[in-house]
């Protein structure tokens, strides 16, 4: 399997790795059984994501998509972060192998989960339809032989 230069760059040099002890929102998606877990921490100031960090367990593309997704929402208004799609992450990484697309879906969901957590913590009403994982990415389905 071949990864793009961009994926390798974000994998070997991941941006925003770490935790935020005083995070305003934390989102964790995936499960270890399937081999990927992403945890994103956000700090919010005036509805702007002023800081973001991530921790990821997973393959190179899981690490690279987490890194890219955090770069894409850093300093952005929450509204805009919520518009982040997995497709945009894939494009920014100059493509992912087909078997790895689910990593980008996880990244999108991790961002949304962090925002949802921020909203709940602050009792901000939000449309639950826009969030939450319905298991559609397939990453949690253990594929049979």
């Amino acid at each position: 399997m071949l990864y793009s230069k961009e994926v390798m760059d974000h994998f070997t040099n991941p941006r925003n790795v770490g935790k935020l002890e005083d995070a305003d929102g934390v989102g964790e998606v995936g499960n270890a059984k399937c081999g990927d877990i992403m945890k994103i921490y956000i700090k919010v100031d005036n509805e702007i994501i002023s800081d973001v960090k991530f921790n990821t367990f997973g393959c190179a593309s899981a690490i690279a998509t987490s890194s890219m997704a955090t770069e894409m929402i850093k300093g952005k208004p929450i509204e805009e972060a919520l518009k982040l799609t997995n497709k945009a992450v894939v494009e920014a990484l100059n493509g992912l192998p087909p078997a790895k697309i689910h990593c980008s879906v996880l990244a999108e969901e991790a961002v949304k989960a962090a925002v949802a957590n921020y909203y709940s913590k602050n009792s901000i009403e939000y449309d639950k339809e826009l969030f939450g994982c319905d298991g559609c990415c397939g990453s949690c389905k253990i594929a049979g032989e």
Partner: peptide, 30 residues
């Protein structure tokens, strides 16, 4: 606590060619 494909690729960047039985290297999710 870690996943085999990442480990494999990091080793490769150091010139070490090994292998893993992780799902990501097998092409399936298992």
């Amino acid at each position: 606590g870690i996943e085999g494909e990442s480990l494999l690729l990091m080793l490769d960047l150091k010139g070490i060619c090994a292998s893993s039985g992780s799902a990501c290297t097998s092409g399936s999710l298992d």
